[in-house]
């Protein structure tokens, strides 16, 4: 099984480029604007789109992303709405990978089997579900792989060498290294710390390692891209949307971050 994510990394490798991954919340500030943003992301240089699935209780997120989720929910966004958005995006773009990122309960509530079939059909390529560690792999991770979706795992500074193989075991697509102990939008980690950690993970897997949490500027995206296979920016982009910036300004900010990540 080869997903759009696998194909994208093959392409990046062939071109000798690092990946730039963006995160935005589906339905923030409303469904139409949010769709307009994601439609513009590939042209802005985004290699992989992470799309947030709003949840009332995002325990691993800071205030910026929690508020984005609240705006989306108040605007009526649902899991079905997110799937519809992806379907609309796929009408114009059949190659940029989309990773759905969120928490388990909305998926569990819909029913895992039904969700996986719908997600695959809508054009979602991978899942990051924050509150499903390897210990709960039977819930969604294993069925997702069987359904042809990548299940992307987070590795963190608390994932020691002993635990790392457990974390990597059922991971596919890429590994998302959370560069800090903390929530999204928190202070940046030192690049000096990130490099050896990425090397430690890469020694244990052939999968690409992408780094996120605490990256807010093109310079920082470049520093991270130098030591990893790519960088994720979420809170800083969501912050632009929260500030009410028009879509073209949001996209030009995204383009500056992508240029940073692609400059190395």
């Amino acid at each position: 099984m080869k997903t759009r994510i696998d194909a994208k990394f093959e392409q990046l490798k062939a071109e000798g480029r690092k990946a730039f991954v963006s995160y935005t919340m589906a339905g923030d500030p409303d469904a139409a604007t949010s769709l307009e943003v994601i439609k513009g992301l590939p042209a802005a240089g985004v290699d992989i789109i992470e799309l947030g699935l709003p949840f009332t209780d995002p325990m691993a997120d800071g205030p910026t992303i929690q508020l984005a989720g609240q705006r989306a929910l108040e605007g009526g966004m649902t899991l079905q709405g997110v799937l519809d958005m992806v379907r609309a995006f796929r009408e114009q773009d059949d190659s940029t990978p989309i990773v759905l990122m969120g928490y388990y309960n909305p998926i569990y509530s819909r029913g895992v089997e039904r969700f996986l079939a719908d997600a695959k059909d809508a054009g979602i390529d991978g899942l990051i579900v924050v509150d499903l560690p390897p210990e709960e792999d039977d819930e969604l991770c294993v069925p997702a792989q069987a359904a042809g979706l990548n299940f992307i795992r987070l590795a963190t500074p608390t994932t020691d060498d002993k635990r790392l193989p457990t974390v990597l075991q059922n991971t596919s697509g890429f590994v998302y290294y959370v560069s800090i102990t903390g929530i999204t939008g928190a202070a940046a980690a030192e690049a000096g710390d990130v490099g050896p950690e990425v090397a430690r993970i890469k020694a244990a897997t052939d999968l690409p390692v992408i780094v996120g949490f605490g990256i807010r500027t093109p310079e920082r995206a470049a520093e991270i891209a130098r030591v990893a296979d790519g960088a994720v920016v979420g809170t800083a982009i969501v912050g632009e949307i929260a500030a009410g910036k028009p879509v073209d300004e949001v996209l030009s900010f995204v383009a500056s971050l992508a240029d940073g990540a692609h400059s190395v």
């Binding site: 499903l132 987070l154 020691d160």
Partner: peptide
């Protein structure tokens, strides 16, 4: 696995799992 029948479990982020 921390289950009472189907209930319970360890649905936490990776950062907390080792803890």
């Amino acid at each position: 696995d921390g289950r009472f029948g189907d209930f319970g479990g360890r649905f936490v982020s990776e950062t907390l799992m080792p803890l």
